[in-house]
């Protein structure tokens, strides 16, 4: 059985349009112009229990809309959605007790009170027994390194601290399915890494299913084996992240630090020279030949340092958005 099943999901919005200025306002009084925005347009996918799936797409692609439909906040325009066997928009208590939606931009913590107050409310609302509450709270405190944050007034917390408390509030009832919308937005690199680590840990410990959107490719690369890419409401790719990387970017980048600088033309036979700043040179090399090229470089030059890297994920995704995937991916829906 799947934890998440989405079949031919569509979500359209009606948006009012108004020409700017006074006359525009007057005209819109007489005739309201509306336009239909197809935020999600016929998307299908399934997610198995315990899977972590990265949900990618440019701004306005329909990621957040999909998450809102899946968590029951929005009624779908068409299509069928099942989460844990429930129809989300019916918002049955038994369903809500098993899911969570964390929105990096929205919060549930009570602003003027310490975060522990929100946790106590959630304890009552989710009907969490005392001993389980204490156990979960201890675990969350340890995993998120909450320390004494919970007893500080929420408005006095830093953004990162608040996000940690927000996660604690969202996971107190140990949901089976996690929808995470930009959970690391606005956090510094260290905090991002911690939140990421926490999500991985939570998934491993409770076998929870995670559907995650993020602008930070590092989040996705670290957590998700599988990615779903949508653009303009359409599904563009659904599959293995590694396969995607190999298909879209069938090359790696070798960066060498030479003992003395050489002319770029000397390096040309090795591959496409991306950058040559004095002694530091980056060369793009086809995947299959990487080790051979590296060996040759080491042989022919006096090399201080050599690294072989995947091309940046941002670039790959960018490539997919601009249409590079269509011929590359065999499993486009």
């Amino acid at each position: 059985m799947y934890h998440i099943e989405v079949r031919h999901l569509k979500k359209y919005y009606e948006v009012h349009h108004k020409a700017p200025g006074f006359w525009g306002s007057l005209r819109s009084l007489v005739r309201r112009e509306t336009r239909t925005v197809r935020a999600v347009d016929d998307i299908s996918f399934t997610v198995a229990p315990g899977e972590i799936v990265g949900f990618l797409g440019p701004n306005g692609a329909g990621k957040t809309t999909t998450l809102k439909v899946l968590s029951g906040l929005l009624y779908p325009t068409a299509g069928e959605v099942r989460v844990l066997g429930f129809t989300p928009h019916e918002r049955q208590p038994a369903f809500l007790r098993q899911i969570t939606l964390v929105m990096g931009q929205k919060q549930q913590l009570l602003w003027d009170l310490p975060a522990i107050e929100t946790l106590l409310i959630n304890k009552a609302i989710y009907e969490i027994p005392d001993d389980e509450f204490r156990r979960t709270l201890d675990e969350l405190t340890e995993l998120l390194e909450l320390g004494t944050l919970l007893t500080k007034q929420v408005r006095k917390l830093s953004l990162g601290e608040r996000m940690k408390c927000e996660l604690a509030a969202a996971l107190l009832h140990r949901p089976k399915v996690l929808f995470l919308d930009e959970p690391t937005i606005g956090l510094d690199v260290t905090m991002q890494a911690k939140v990421r680590q926490f999500i991985a840990e939570y998934n491993a410990r409770y076998g929870a299913t995670v559907l995650l959107t993020s602008h930070y490719m590092a989040d996705v690369a670290a957590l998700a084996k599988r990615v779903i890419i949508i653009d303009h409401g359409h599904l563009v790719y659904d599959g293995d992240l590694e396969t995607l990387v190999q298909q879209v970017a069938p090359y790696k980048v070798i960066t060498v630090t030479l003992r003395q600088s050489v002319s770029p033309s000397v390096l040309k036979p090795f591959g496409h020279v991306l950058a040559a700043n004095g002694v530091k040179v980056s060369i793009q090399v086809p995947r299959g030949t990487t080790s051979r090229v590296a060996a040759r470089l080491l042989q022919e030059f006096a090399v201080d340092d050599l690294t072989i890297e995947e091309p940046p994920l941002e670039e790959i995704i960018q490539h997919v958005f601009t249409g590079g995937i269509r011929e590359a991916s065999p499993d486009v829906a």
Binding site: K68, R91, L96, Q108
Partner: peptide, 12 residues
């Protein structure tokens, strides 16, 4: 402003 959303996620 959509602040209702977090409230709607709770089973109450």
């Amino acid at each position: 402003l959509g602040e209702l959303s977090p409230k709607l996620l709770r089973p109450i």
